[in-house]
Design a protein around this nucleic acid. Structure first.
Lengths: 247, 247
DNA sequence: ACCAATTAATTGGTTTACCAAAAATAAGCA
DNA sequence: TGCTTATTTTTGGTAAACCAATTAATTGGT
């Protein structure tokens, strides 16, 4: 049964936009399109790649987000003035950017939040403190009534991220949050014991941020995340065993 | 003159998709659209918001990237099963996610790369070592001939990121790279002296990764980035002064 | 031969129309 | 009455058409 599923999923063709992105990459690495050049008109690309213009625009949009293209209305779309080597490297990863690797996800979160909590402790305003405390209490109320307070937990962490006053770090954590939630509920990390200890850990983190003690904040966050990480790894292993059994 | 420019830039209206995202947010926070619900059909939303369907699709695409929506072909688009609080928080930040805050950008990069280099030192394979060394030599060749080797520098850091074996961290660094380059060339961080010292710093980093010495790798990277950071801050201040003078 | 102004062609922005697949509904049979 | 099977409607996927603005070309005058 497992092999059947694998065959099916293996068939799935890469999305049209990724194919287009790959083609554009080829144009660039082959030298037909140099950095700084203007791209052919969207209509031309559409015809050349044998695909609707919608997909061309979608691909351009994606590459624009990564800073590889810059489009001037009524003028044209231009390749960034980066070296071919850089463009090549980045495009290759855009195509395969997925957050499905749970281990990588948890690990990235771990490092990000450790840095975030330190900055938060250093820079938090009184308003930050208020909103963090409020989120913490929401979590405690939900957790003490027995429900899984995964979302409330995440709000707590989001509020901490906001206190960093660094919009880039905040955005990165925000990007990971939905996938983290998916991971946590999937591996059933939220048990009664866990909720109790998490409440204590949150309070430790909050206290450290309030005291603006960066070292203590980092330590508290590390122990908080470490536990989640361990459970996640165990859950992942268990899931793996189940999958193996299906073969 | 400054005030004139400011007035012009202040007029810029938010893009249609951001407006749509804001509307969708309103639908959700107002309770008309609950987590898990299916969104109205794209055509309906298009008519309701008085805008073309392309924009609706674009907005959905963006929200999908952040994990807030999930669209099943030929079935419908669904709101993620997250609490309204979480969704509200995330959407608010999607609209204003820009990497134009150079201080935040450099700072985020600093922390990301410090973590990355540690992981790279721990996990690098022989192939990683090869590609890092190759990138390093490319940089040295370019820098020693006098040219600004900003891109080559970035390739070096990208290769280090690849060695972390963490696709999430790698992708995050990749997202920042183009903006980092923009910042560096804008602030003219690349001088002759700088290139010389950077070569030495790169070699230190490489040596630490080769020796799999995590602590040393972190230290080397920190001193490397610290210098860039200082110059960047100085450049930013100088730019600020220039802008002020224009008033 | 050179410059200015007007026209023609091309651009990305935006909307609309068309398509196959999936769901929901209705009809027909047991 | 209950279940299966057509059929219709609705869905997102895809392509094409229309628009205003910009740019290039051409024309006319000097």
């Amino acid at each position: 049964m497992k092999s059947l599923i694998e065959n099916i999923t293996a068939i799935q063709v890469e999305s049209p936009v990724d194919k287009i992105i790959g083609q554009l990459k080829q144009l660039i690495v082959s030298g037909q399109l140099k950095p700084g050049d203007r791209l052919p008109a969207e209509r031309v690309l559409s015809e050349r790649f044998g695909v609707g213009r919608s997909y061309i625009r979608e691909a351009i949009l994606k590459l624009e987000f990564y800073g590889l293209l810059r489009t001037n209305p009524q003028s044209g779309t231009y390749v960034a003035g980066l070296s071919i080597n850089v463009i090549d490297n980045i495009i290759s990863d855009i195509i395969k950017f997925n957050k499905d690797d749970f281990n990588a996800l948890i690990e990235a979160r771990y490092h990000l939040e450790l840095n975030a909590v330190k900055l938060a402790a250093e820079r938090r305003t009184c308003e930050d403190l208020e909103s963090i405390k409020s989120a913490m209490e929401d979590y405690e109320n939900k957790a003490s009534t027995g429900g899984d307070a995964v979302e409330e937990d995440m709000v707590f962490h989001i509020k901490v991220a906001k206190a960093t006053k660094n919009s880039v770090i905040e955005s990165m954590i925000l990007i990971l949050v939905p996938d983290l939630i998916k991971n946590i509920v999937q591996n059933k990390i939220c048990g009664d014991n866990r909720a109790k200890t998490a409440i204590e850990e949150h309070r430790m983190i909050y206290a450290a941020i309030e005291a603006q003690d960066m070292a203590k904040a980092e330590e508290a966050m590390a122990s908080h995340l470490d536990e989640i990480w361990q459970i996640s790894k165990a859950g992942f292993a268990a899931q793996h065993i189940i999958n193996e059994a299906e073969v």
